[in-house]
Amino acid sequence: MMGVFGAIVRRDLRLALRQGMDSVMVVMFFVIAVVLFSFGVGPEPNVLARIAAGVIWVSALLASMLSLERLFQIDYEDGSLELLALAPVPLEVAVVAKVTAHWLTTGLPLILAAPLLAVLLRMDGEGFGILIAVLLIGTPTLSLIGAVGAGLILGSRRGGVLLSLLILPLYIPVLIFGVGAVDAAIGGFPFKAHLLILGAFLAGSAALCPWAAAAAVRQAIE
């Protein structure tokens, strides 16, 4: 079973590297969104520093939405998804493998770009470490929740818009605690509780989302 998991992750990574502008596109979108915020708000350093964590998180949410639509869509269209569903391993394993590959190609680059943007927004240095930490815990949760939406929109036209409407509201708790942790760290308050709650979100979605997403995919290929 682990062999199959590895095989699907490797295949998706290979596909992403060969044809995918996905990672580049997601990071570019992230950078542009953050830069637009700073143009919109104005050059006042105190204001930018105050909203830095929120801007980075919201931009990261929107950027990770960009590629979610295609998480299952391409495999669905070329028939690969049917064959994955018929493979001798549970479809849930294939779903987790695809989510893992998705996070490695989009979530991880976002985390690498985040500190750079934090500097751009003059975020307080106290918050850098914790920003990386909350993104590391938070973005896998986003990919997992997003997989359920990506499964549900299979076969629908205008899936991307529908996906945002389905998924973005579910991202709110992650956003609140993600930003809260960074703000707490900058303000010198304890932030452990935020991290624990984000960890709970990740554990909860890791336990539930693969089943929900696999059920949605089965529904779509029937």
């Binding site: 295949r11 290979r14 596909l15 060969r18 044809q19 269209e77 070329d78 028939g79 690969s80 049917e82 064959l83």
Partner: peptide, 11 residues
């Protein structure tokens, strides 16, 4: 073997 061939263009 269904109607789709499940051949990835990039592989």
């Amino acid at each position: 073997v269904g109607h789709h061939d499940a051949v990835k263009p990039a592989l």
